[in-house]
């Protein structure tokens, strides 16, 4: 999709006479975001994963999440021990899924927050409940400020933030890279810690990228030659290697530009420095006052006209 450039956008706004135009002066595009490879992330290698779901249960353990949603619980399991969620949910931050094309073609995949370098969820949250840590790059959520508007869910291209639809006091649930739990205590994420086959590697983005590139180099036939997350939506800190096409694993094909850059650019064009709204208000006040003043005379004339017509 070709995106309108800011200049074109402004041109047409101007042509159509939108008063918002007054903000052209001083409107600048948002600063281009820079990828920071010293931030923390994980590399998930789908070819190593054995689908044991140890990461899922470890994640629930450290986050004290309750079992799966009511409709996902098996009938025979009245005490809710057998937990088999079908998707990420208000009680599930990470999930292992199996995608089977044929007996030879299948792959596991792990879902959890991608910890985007330019996260859409942070860009849209109206009250800064979603934040990205400048140093670690971790995207975290604060339920004490969240108003529950679910704009983050609309915005996230990976459908990661989940809402607790079944609760009277709901919140958003998503992976926080164990920032408040395992990472704080043990220096590693719980899912990476428990993985028995080393399918989840935890570390700095640059090390993860290096390792991923090494694997691609050393076993070229084994993988699709692409590190998912390296460039997608401006880069993510959760990276993937796989033998199957990523979109078959439910990881969408995405452009390299971050959607948040596009939307912020337009929002900033209109609202930079609040000049446009103030100018608009000023102009309108001027016009309205003039009209009100002129009205006395105006009315007389009009009445004359009317009576002329009447005559």
């Amino acid at each position: 999709m070709k995106k309108p450039s800011r200049r074109d956008f402004l041109k047409i706004m101007g042509a159509s006479g939108a008063a918002l135009m007054a903000g052209r002066v001083g409107a600048e595009a948002s600063e281009l975001h820079q990828v920071n490879n010293d931030t923390l992330g994980m590399l998930y290698d789908a070819t190593k994963c054995v689908g044991c779901k140890a990461c899922m249960s470890a994640c629930k353990r450290v986050n004290s999440d309750y079992g799966s949603l009511a409709f996902e619980q098996a009938k025979f399991d009245s005490d809710g021990l057998w937990d088999a969620p079908q998707d990420l949910s208000g009680s599930t931050r990470t999930l292992i899924k199996l995608f089977k094309e044929s007996d030879k073609q299948w792959s596991y995949v792990k879902y959890s927050c991608m910890h985007c370098q330019k996260p859409s969820c942070v860009s849209v949250c109206p009250v800064s409940a979603m934040t990205r840590d400048k140093v670690t790059g971790t995207v975290d959520y604060n339920k004490d400020t969240c108003i529950g508007c679910r704009y983050c869910q609309i915005a996230c291209a990976f459908n990661i933030p989940k809402f607790q639809w079944d609760k009277a006091i709901p919140q958003i649930v998503k992976c926080d890279l164990c920032k408040n739990t395992n990472l704080a205590k043990k220096g590693i994420t719980a899912c990476a810690e428990v993985c028995p086959v080393g399918a989840i590697m935890f570390g700095k983005r640059k090390d993860l990228l290096e390792e991923a590139n090494r694997r691609l180099r050393e076993s070229p036939g084994k993988y699709i030659n692409h590190i998912y997350g390296e460039k997608e939506v401006g880069g993510t800190n959760h990276l993937y290697l796989s033998a199957m096409q990523f979109n078959k694993l439910g990881l969408p094909v995405l452009a390299e530009a971050a959607p948040a850059e596009f939307s912020e650019k337009i929002q900033h064009t209109i609202y930079k420095g609040f000049i446009a709204p103030v100018a608009l208000y000023g102009t309108l006040c001027f016009v309205a006052l003039k009209n009100m003043k002129g009205h006395g005379k105006h009315q007389e004339n009009e009445n004359k006209e009317d009576s002329d017509h009447g005559a």
Binding site: S123, S128, I147, S263
Partner: peptide, 14 residues
């Protein structure tokens, strides 16, 4: 939180 400046998020259309 809409009235607390430190929580303001001018990037958000909402």
């Amino acid at each position: 939180n809409f009235f607390i400046p430190s929580k303001w998020q001018a990037n958000s259309a909402m």
